[in-house]
């Protein structure tokens, strides 16, 4: 009797605490989503980390702690070189995408008066079609017997197909820059759109030229959008393997292709896991450097 009363008051006290605490109620509401993400993301990532310290022998996984896979990465130059190439390609893609996207986003934000959303939709429509098909379309366009070559030949501009346009890193950069354009345009557009127009007018009023106003006001204020765009393009493209597989040729192979092959032909899951971990760490490091650089830039402008 006494103990049930105590239990009862315990329940009541918990309910009271629950009612009083917004944190608790918020977490309760967040918990289904959180549980799913925990099981579907954190747990697998933990397994990835674990596996990277195991070893593959033929078809068996040897479940003892070893650093062999990491040692492999540093000993065999090929992995190191391909990771370096992937980062470089992705940085080029990032630069190309942002540099191309910024003027367009600027144009829509500042020079389109009506139906801005329609513009945004028109620009993003190509990206709602299958990623695979878009990459494939580039293969068709850039190919030996592709649209550009056959088009130029039937126009009589060239006699022989150009060979340098497919199966190299440049083809990868072009294709990726196209594939991720929408991802770059949207955040830049949003950050430009948010800028209070009176700030720009104030700068002009205070005697700055249009160019200096852009450098001292518009650009710094849109920097968050530019940073978001850069990261949203850079991070996923490092791991991309569809594009290099279709248009990259042997010289365009990226780390994603290597990782993928560890789970296919090569069948070495632990090495694939270790390469993934190393890639993620490298990407994180590069991202930190990029953020540090923009921080310095911002300080300088201010």
């Amino acid at each position: 009797m006494n103990s049930t009363a105590a239990e009862h008051s315990l329940v009541a006290r918990f309910r009271l605490k629950f009612r009083r605490s917004e944190t608790l109620r918020g977490y309760a509401l967040l918990s289904p989503t959180l549980t799913v993400v925990l099981l579907g993301l954190l747990f697998p990532l933990a397994i990835l980390l674990t596996l990277s310290f195991w070893k593959q022998e033929y078809v068996d996984l040897i479940q003892t702690f070893t650093l062999t896979n990491y040692a492999d990465f540093f000993e065999k130059k090929i992995y190191y070189l391909i990771l370096y190439r992937s980062i470089r390609i992705s940085l080029f893609v990032m630069l190309a995408t942002v540099l191309l996207a910024y003027p367009l986003a600027y144009f829509i934000a500042f020079h389109v008066k009506k139906n801005k959303i329609m513009w945004i939709i028109l620009i993003t429509i190509p990206f709602w079609t299958s990623y695979l098909l878009r990459v494939f379309a580039w293969k068709v366009i850039l190919g030996y017997n592709g649209v550009i070559n056959s088009g130029l030949m039937s126009l009589g501009i060239i006699a022989e197909p150009l060979q340098f346009i497919l199966y190299n890193p440049i083809a990868v950069v072009i294709t990726l820059a196209h594939a991720w354009a929408a991802v770059a345009i949207l955040p830049i557009y949003v950050s430009l759109e948010k800028i209070d127009r009176s700030l720009i007018e104030a700068s002009r009023d205070l005697g700055e030229s249009a160019v200096m106003t852009f450098i001292r006001v518009t650009l710094p204020l849109s920097l968050p959008g530019v940073i978001a765009a850069s990261l949203l393009v850079f991070i996923p493209t490092v791991g991309d393997y569809v594009t290099p597989a279709l248009v990259g040729g042997t010289r365009g192979i990226m780390i994603g292709n290597i990782i993928q092959s560890m789970f296919g032909k090569a069948l070495n899951w632990p090495l694939g896991a270790a390469l993934s971990i190393i890639s993620m760490l490298t990407v994180t490091a590069v991202v930190c450097m990029l953020l540090g650089a923009t921080h310095l830039f911002r300080k300088k402008v201010a």
């Binding site: 993301l41 697998p44 990532l45 397994i47 990835l48 991070i235 996923p236 490092v238 791991g239 991309d240 393997y241 994603g256 990782i259 993928q260 789970f263 899951w269 694939g272 896991a273 993934s276 890639s279 993620m280 990407v283």
Partner: peptide, 9 residues
Amino acid sequence: IPEIILGIS
């Protein structure tokens, strides 16, 4: 995170 990493994990 690159989709490939989510995929393999």
